[in-house]
């Protein structure tokens, strides 16, 4: 079954990619609040949130003397 010499490495690579992606997700705190994150999709407001940089400029503008 020579084709497995091809298919098995491919599958192992896919598995390794999956594993590293899982590690990334752990590092980036994806699992820190599973209850809250399940609820977030239910929020009704249908608009994007302001980007982080935009917030910073709003806030510093306001608090600057």
């Amino acid at each position: 079954m020579t084709i497995l010499a091809f298919l098995i490495p491919i599958t192992l690579c896919m598995g390794a990619v999956g594993l590293s992606v899982f590690f990334w997700s752990l590092r980036s705190n994806q699992y820190d609040d599973l209850s809250g994150d399940a609820e977030r999709i239910l929020f009704d407001d249908d608009r994007p949130l302001p980007a982080a940089s935009a917030r910073l400029s709003i806030t510093t503008k306001e608090t600057a003397p």
Partner: peptide, 28 residues
């Protein structure tokens, strides 16, 4: 208690100009 609380609190906090970002953790 629930998602509605999370939404209410985050919205109220994020609207304030003295806060950069507020995030609620329902689990903790």
């Amino acid at each position: 208690r629930c998602g509605g609380c999370v939404a209410k609190i985050e919205r109220a906090l994020n609207v304030r100009t003295d806060i950069l970002s507020a995030r609620v953790n329902l689990t903790l």
